[in-house]
Amino acid sequence: MSAARPVEIAVQDPAGARVAMGAGATRLELCQALEVGGLTPSLGLLEAALAATEPSAVNVLVRPRAGGFVYDAEEVALAGADIRACVERGAGGVVVGALTATGGLDIETLRRWRDAAGAATLVFHRAIDAAADPNAVFDMLVAEGVDRVLTSGGASRAIDGVTTLGAFAARSGDVEVMAGGGVTPADIPALFSVGVHAVHLSARARAGHEAPSGPGGGSSGHDVTDVAVVREAVAAATR
């Protein structure tokens, strides 16, 4: 019998969580504001998403603001509090990332956040792709013992970083390498062919274009999780 390799879907609401898991996704990254790369969801959103699906499948993005990954002490403390709150409510994992001003891995912050996460899965996100030397940061993450690294291999899109992704997977040890960044279902076989362990995509579509909008209301429409794209991604991941 064929088996699907892990497919993670980024979702922004409980409906997206139900759609993605119902269509065969392995797990979720829960966030809000995907249009700016994702931010920490509210606790209300987290609790609703946990109630909508299996909590162990929910990995919560903890990112206190947009605009890079270099954080001051107050932001580090805020993210730590959010990590603890997410884990206390039953989230299976947290997704984090922090860099130094020179583009290296902020090890001290990573360790503080790992302590806050306790036994939950610790995922380092695509901050690695903004690092001065993604290869060096990857090796440090392996040494630090994170559970999973979400990366495009330093490219704009994961499919363009496939060679680096394969090199990461070859020396990842116990760390799961998850390819993400502009992933489409058509990219998935090639990504798995180089040895990555999982893929990540948002599977977004636009809805609500007919809704009134205007000054202060932003653009019309909003993102939803497209069940057809999720199904196509899961099918592409089946060996």
Rank of each mutant, 00 (worst) to 15 (best):
A4F: 03
A10R: 02
D13C: 01
A15T: 09
A20E: 11
T26H: 15
T26I: 02
C31R: 01
C31S: 03
Q32K: 12
A33C: 09
E35M: 08
S42E: 00
L43T: 06
A51Q: 07
A52V: 00
T53I: 01
A57I: 03
L61P: 01
R63E: 09
G67C: 08
G68L: 14
G68E: 08
G68H: 07
F69V: 07
F69N: 05
D72P: 06
E74P: 02
V76W: 02
L78W: 11
L78H: 13
R84M: 01
C86F: 02
V87N: 00
E88S: 14
A91E: 01
G92H: 07
G93P: 06
G97K: 05
A98P: 00
A98Y: 04
A98L: 08
L99E: 11
T100E: 06
A101M: 00
D106K: 09
D106Y: 09
R114D: 02
G118M: 06
A119E: 14
A119K: 13
R126K: 11
A130F: 14
A130R: 11
P134T: 12
A136H: 12
V137D: 04
M140L: 11
S152D: 08
G154W: 03
G154C: 09
S156F: 05
S156W: 02
R157K: 15
R157P: 03
A158Y: 02
I159K: 10
I159H: 07
T164L: 15
T164D: 05
L165C: 06
A169R: 05
R171W: 04
R171C: 13
V175G: 07
E176K: 12
V177D: 11
G180C: 05
G182A: 07
T184F: 00
T184K: 15
P189D: 02
L191N: 08
V194P: 02
H197W: 07
H200C: 12
L201K: 10
R204E: 07
R204Q: 14
A211I: 15
P215A: 11
G217T: 15
G221K: 05
V224P: 04
V229Y: 01
V234P: 08
A237S: 13
A237G: 15
R239F: 15
